[in-house]
Computed example of a mutant assay.
Amino acid sequence: MNKCKRSLRLIATVAIASIAGFQAKAQQSVDLIMDNFTSSVISQTNVQLSNIAIRSAMRNANAKKAVRGSASAPVTKVNLAYTPTKDLQDRTFQELVTKLKTRDANAASAVNNALGAGRASYDQLFGQMVKESGLPANNAATAMAAYLEIAYAIVNNVTDQSSITPAMDKALQRQTATLLNKNTALTSPTAVAQLGEQLKLQAVVLYLGWQSTLKNGQFAQFRSNIDQQFKGMGFDLSKVSLTAQGFKKKA
């Protein structure tokens, strides 16, 4: 059992570490830091966009720029809601397990034990996690908001989870929706669904790692790992507060 718990901690770290890092300037606003972070996640979280979809997105973006003739043209809203197929969810799960097998066989086994056949799926667990907030589970902005919120709670050692209110959940979801709407790689419904499912799975894995380390006395190291991982992605979660307006820089 302890071996399984240690593996869950490793799973969470590996899942986040799969996103390559970048540096953010200290004077950047929270919105700009989140914008950079979002672009990094979309481009580097192993979202399998087809070349055709990417080329189509770029053509659409270029055509809009040509018509508008200005970089300040309004951003077309993307439908961030989607209906996931079982095939997509199975592929999302298996891709993570396969990736983990090459790095840590125990971690891959722990994922299968926690979320594999005969267990509650990551989709079911994610639905339970966001139910109280009233947010739609099958929405890429909800998935990203949940992923960020769990990481925020870990880094800031939020012991009273009820202190994060549904109003805060919704504000963070609106914040992430605004950022996702700016990204031209998400003009395809397929891309939105793939991003949403991968972030849902990462949010669940991160939550499982958090809860297991709280129980086995390894939270301090886990917290430090997550803090460093997000700093490596240009997002210092210790310097922001989650409010009814979303993330704001601490005074």
Rank of each mutant, 00 (worst) to 15 (best):
N216G: 00
G232L: 02
R59F: 04
V204R: 03
F219W: 09
T76C: 03
N46M: 13
G232E: 00
K170T: 14
G209L: 09
E197S: 14
V111C: 08
I42E: 01
V41H: 06
K215S: 13
K182H: 07
L49S: 11
L80W: 01
R174H: 11
A66E: 12
I11T: 14
S188F: 05
L237G: 06
S133L: 04
V192Y: 06
A12N: 02
A66D: 09
A110F: 10
V47G: 11
P136Y: 00
L214V: 06
N51G: 15
T92K: 07
S50P: 09
A171F: 06
S133V: 02
P166H: 02
T184Q: 14
F222I: 02
D104K: 03
T102W: 01
V205D: 08
Q124R: 05
N112F: 05
K64V: 02
V67E: 12
N181F: 01
D160G: 06
V205E: 07
T178N: 13
L148F: 04
L195H: 02
N181V: 01
I54H: 09
A107W: 02
K249S: 13
T76K: 08
Y82N: 00
W210C: 02
V240Y: 08
L125H: 06
L206K: 06
A71T: 14
N113K: 14
S162A: 15
Q89P: 06
N60H: 12
T184S: 14
S121G: 11
Q94H: 14
S72K: 13
T38D: 06
A146S: 13
F126N: 05
V192A: 06
M1I: 12
T178V: 13
Q89F: 08
N225G: 01
L214C: 01
L115E: 05
I19Q: 11
T243E: 09
F93C: 05
S212A: 15
T142E: 07
N51V: 06
A141E: 05
T187L: 13
Q48S: 07
R55E: 15
T176H: 05
K239L: 12
S109M: 08
N139P: 00
G127Q: 09
Q173K: 15
I226H: 05
K101Y: 00
K239Y: 01
L135I: 10
T243V: 05
Q173N: 13
Q218K: 14
D104M: 03
V205P: 07
E95V: 04
N216W: 11
V155G: 03
P136Q: 02
Q221F: 11
I150Y: 10
L201W: 03
G134N: 01
L214M: 08
T187M: 06
G118N: 08
P166Y: 07
V97A: 07
N106I: 00
A151D: 04
N62E: 11
N113Q: 14
G116V: 09
K131S: 09
S18D: 15
A171Q: 09
L195W: 00
R59C: 04
F235T: 05
Q94Y: 09
S50Q: 02
A251E: 13
L199E: 09
A26E: 15
A191N: 11
I54T: 12
S212W: 00
